[in-house]
Simulated assay, not measured.
Amino acid sequence: MTKTESNIILFSITLCWASSYIFIKNLPPELSAFAYLTMTAGLASIILLIVFFKRLRDFNSKILLRSAAMAAILCVNLIFEKMGIAAIPASTASFIASLNIVIVPLLLLFFRKRPSRNNLLGILIILSGLALSSGVKPGQPLEAGMLYMLSACFLMAVYIICTDRFTKDHDPLLLGVGQMFFTAILSFILWSLQEPKTFLLVNYSNTLLANIFMLAFFSKAYAYIMLMYSQKYASPLSVTVIASTEPIVTMVLAVLIPGTFGVNESFTIIKLAGAVLIAAGAVCAGTDFLNKKEEKPLAGNSASL
C-alpha cells in the first residue's frame, strides 16, 4: 500500500467517524452507552465473521491477547464518546475529539519520536481552525459532556499508538476482527451488570435499527478494519493529522442532514474560516517544505567545501 492509498483510506475512515456523530445523536436518550456499544460492535462482529470466516483459523494466542487489549481501550473510549455526544452539540464533540492532534505527539515523546517542524506548524494551524469552527470560547466552563469527550480523546490517542505498534507485527485483519469481537463481549458484560434484561428492554423502532446498522457497518466494521490496514503503513501522527479534518465533515453533515438525524447546526463565516485553517494545517503537517529549506543551504556549503 502506498502513502497516497493509505491517506485516501484514512480520509474515508474520517468520513465514517464524522458522520457517526450525527447518527449517534438520533439514538433514543434511554439507550445506554453499554447497549449502544453492544449492539453496534455485536452487529459489526457478525458482519466481519461472515465475510472473513475462512481467516479465523489463523488466529493465535498473541493476536487474541493484543486484540483483547485493544478492545478494552476501544470499549471505554466508545462508551465515553457516546456519553459525551449525547450531552453536547455534534460539532463541539468533534472538536474535542480532534484534540488528539496534540495528545498523540505528546505521547510519542515517551518513545523518543519528535514531530517535524511541518508537523508542529500544522498542529498549531489546525488548533486555530478547530477553535474557530467549534464555537468553544476561552473560559467556557467544562460541562460533563466535554469531560467525557476529553477522556475519549485521550483513550483514542493511546489506542492509535497501540494499534501502530501491534499492526507492524501482526495481521491487521485479524486484529480488527478480534478487537471488534472482544469489544462486543466486554460491552455486553457491562450492559448485563447495568440491566440484566438487556435486549428485552430495548424499543426496536425503525429509526433505532437504521441508525444502529449504519453505525455498525460504516463506523465500526469498515472503519476499524481499514484503520488496522492503514496504520500498518502510516505513522500515528499521520493518522491523527488526517483525523483532525473530522470536524469539517461533521460541521457540513450537521447542516445538510435533516433534523431527524440530530440537531441542526448553523453554518457561519467563522466556521468556514475554521474549516479552511484545518485543511491548510493538515496539508502543512503532511508535507516537509520547512525541512527542505533547511537542507538547501547545507547542501550548498558542503559543495563549496
Rank of each mutant, 00 (worst) to 15 (best):
F217D: 03
E143T: 15
T92Y: 13
N60G: 04
Q194E: 14
A254N: 00
Y222R: 14
G286D: 06
R66Q: 11
P138G: 03
L215G: 02
M70T: 09
I73M: 07
L31Y: 02
I278F: 06
V202A: 03
I103S: 04
L121C: 12
E81D: 15
L256P: 05
P236W: 02
A221S: 01
I46V: 13
L142V: 00
L305E: 14
M39P: 01
V263S: 12
S32R: 08
T260K: 13
A86C: 13
C75G: 05
K3T: 10
L43F: 08
N7E: 15
K137F: 11
E246A: 06
S133A: 14
Y159I: 09
D171A: 10
S266A: 13
S238H: 12
S244W: 02
G145W: 04
A299Y: 15
S304C: 14
L174Y: 05
Y233H: 15
S244C: 02
L190D: 00
V239I: 05
S20C: 00
L174S: 04
Y21Q: 05
M39Y: 07
F267C: 02
A282F: 04
F267T: 03
L109A: 04
M214V: 15
Q179V: 10
G145S: 07
P141C: 05
M251T: 10
S244N: 01
G84M: 01
T250C: 01
V158K: 01
G42F: 03
S116Y: 09
K113H: 05
A184H: 01
L99W: 09
M70I: 08
A90G: 00
I63S: 03
L109I: 04
L277I: 04
S235D: 08
M149D: 06
G300R: 15
W17S: 04
F217Y: 07
L305P: 14
A41I: 07
L200I: 09
P105D: 06
F166K: 14
G259V: 08
S128M: 10
S6D: 09
P196Y: 05
T198M: 11
T240E: 03
Q231R: 06
L27T: 03
R117M: 13
E294Q: 11
A44V: 02
S134W: 02
A72G: 09
F261C: 07
T287D: 05
L200Q: 11
K3G: 12
F80C: 09
V202G: 07
M226N: 09
M83Q: 11
A280D: 10
L74S: 10
A282E: 03
V283E: 08
M39R: 09
F188L: 15
L106F: 12
L298W: 12
L64D: 10
A68C: 09
F166T: 15
M146D: 09
I270A: 14
F267S: 03
S133W: 11
L132F: 05
I85P: 06
L108E: 03
L256W: 11
F261H: 04
L107V: 06
F111T: 11
H170L: 10
F199I: 08
L15E: 07
Q231P: 08
K168L: 09
A184F: 00
Y36C: 00
Y148G: 02
Y21V: 01
C162T: 15
V276F: 04
